[in-house]
Design a protein around this nucleic acid. Structure first.
Lengths: 114, 114
DNA sequence: TGAACATATGAGCATGTATTCATATGAAAA
DNA sequence: TTTTCATATGAATACATGCTCATATGTTCA
């Protein structure tokens, strides 16, 4: 059933004016999406504490090396993590302090603190 | 190919100690997931500005009334939005200041601002 | 009460995605 | 150079999910 009848056009116009741009919305949502998976969140939470290699993360997550690697690639594309080679190992760490802040606030939120 | 050989067990143990609990990780990821969809992000960004009814949001998003309603239900379950009846309309607004803060920080982040 | 209307809900579809297996890549050590 | 080993990648699969259509629900107004 069509239901556009209840629209308050003034509200719609005002909000449309003040809204983030579509690009901004897409970027924001995209970042949240990257953090919105338990495996990736665990990876990020772990790297928050210490630089780790793929094997460490795989052991920690109890997920295949391949699975970890795939997720790390995604996180790297989004500039959430960075990597450096150390001998045979590739060491991963967080690329961005903002992300740490965002997670802290969110952690407080889910704990109903602050 | 098995590849647990490179594991630095000390690292793994230390990180495991300090990690958020599984429940916390799941809750944090779940909140990010809720915000990690462009449609829901647009809804939240709009409600940040002004309380709106379902029809307003449907007009604003150019998505069916049904689609908006489904997403609003999800956002309400996660306590991101709340609703109140006003005559025939159900008015939606944000339920949580934390969410606003999280989005602000993230918006600054994607803009590469401080 | 009954009609009209805003919103909610269920089913179904199309698309996206997290994981694993098998294998490729490439640096390091022999 | 050849082997070894950590990581990366491609394909396949199983599952999740966002959307629409059709319809139900429940409130308001005649």
């Amino acid at each position: 059933m069509e239901s556009k009848c209840c629209v308050n056009q003034e509200n719609v116009d005002i909000v449309r004016e003040e809204l983030y741009t579509d690009t901004e919305i897409a970027e924001i949502a995209d970042l949240f999406k990257s953090l919105g998976d338990p495996t990736r969140m665990r990876i990020v939470a772990a790297l928050r504490i210490r630089e780790l290699c793929v094997g460490d993360l795989s052991a920690l997550m109890e997920i295949s090396q391949s699975g970890v690697s795939h997720q790390l690639r995604l996180l790297k594309q989004k500039r959430i993590v960075k990597s450096r080679r150390d001998g045979k190992l590739i060491m991963y760490s967080l690329d961005d302090q903002h992300v740490v802040d965002i997670i802290k606030i969110t952690a407080n939120h889910v704990r109903h603190e602050e």
